[in-house]
């Protein structure tokens, strides 16, 4: 193995893979260790989803809308994880005094973020099972049999784009303190709205198109609904087109994350804010 380089360039592949595994391991193991976090990650989004499903029921909407809301509710858990488990993670680390350890490690920062993302996806998927149980079990929402392979493909592309955005957000929060917390707070419900999590994306019209070009969640949810529900999903664009756009967004966000991480790390070091707590 080549000697480790502090900037984590490609020559350190084995080291970076180990760092990715190490950061992912923490999340995988930790996901079962904090019961209250299981509650907040799994149960509470399911409660909100149930409210929206019951709203459709109260309005006398066709049952397919309830399926839309359940799928949106499941995907909401991933957006919450991207915001708080990716975006704000470096803020948490800064507050707990651990951020400097990331920076004295010889691996790439991107490998750490990748581990965080993979662990986050695993952790959130285990949480999403509860939403699936509430939606399809407790609330009695039903979907017809569907092809699993296309769904997995769409899911993987969506997660890559979504967590790429999360990595970019994480780099932004290297610089900021309390603002990071408030930005995460401010981004939660508006993105639920702009991504059409609880209604068909095309109901937003042009606004949905603009939002879909910025946050990949809406396109991902729309594509997954089309795979699962078919025409009842009232999809916006053909699935192939949505997957292609998501793939482009994934590449763009990963490149952006790498660039912004380098830039903001240097900036926050210069301004002495990298390890500054209680900003």
């Amino acid at each position: 193995m080549s000697p480790a380089r502090a900037d984590g360039r490609p020559g350190d592949l084995a080291l970076n893979l180990r760092a990715t595994w190490g950061r992912m391991y923490v999340r995988v193991v930790g996901s079962a260790r904090e019961p209250t976090w299981i509650m907040s990650d799994a149960v509470f989004p399911a409660l909100s989803m149930a409210s929206f499903v019951l709203l459709y029921r109260a309005l006398g909407a066709p049952r397919s809308f309830e399926s839309l809301a359940v799928l949106g509710g499941i995907m909401a858990t991933y957006w919450i994880n991207v915001l708080w488990g990716m975006g704000a993670q470096l803020y948490w680390e800064k507050q707990s005094g651990q951020l400097q350890l990331y920076f004295i490690a010889p691996c790439s920062r991107m490998s750490i973020l990748t581990g965080m993302a993979l662990g986050g996806i695993f952790m959130t998927t285990t949480r999403a099972i509860f939403s699936i149980a509430v939606g399809f079990g407790l609330l009695g929402v039903r979907v017809a049999p569907f092809a699993l392979a296309p769904l997995l493909l769409v899911f993987v592309v969506t997660m890559t784009a979504l967590y790429g955005l999360g990595m970019t957000l994480a780099s932004l929060f290297l610089l900021y303190g309390r603002e990071a917390w408030h930005v995460c707070n401010a981004l939660q419900e508006p993105v639920f709205f702009l991504s059409g999590l609880y209604f068909p994306l095309r109901a937003l019209g042009a606004l949905g198109a603009v939002a879909a070009g910025i946050v990949p969640l809406g396109l991902g949810v729309d594509a997954m609904r089309q795979v699962i529900l078919g025409p009842a999903a009232r999809g916006w664009l053909p699935v192939r087109v949505e997957v292609a756009i998501l793939a482009v967004l994934a590449v763009v966000f990963l490149i952006l994350a790498r660039a912004s991480l380098r830039y903001l790390e240097a900036l926050s070091k210069r301004e002495g804010r990298l390890t500054q707590r209680w900003q």
Partner: peptide
Amino acid sequence: VRPLATALILAVMYRAVAGIAS
């Protein structure tokens, strides 16, 4: 932004089914 977004979610949900809901 948060309360407005929540209200708009409800409004668009209603709009989406307004023609077919009872």
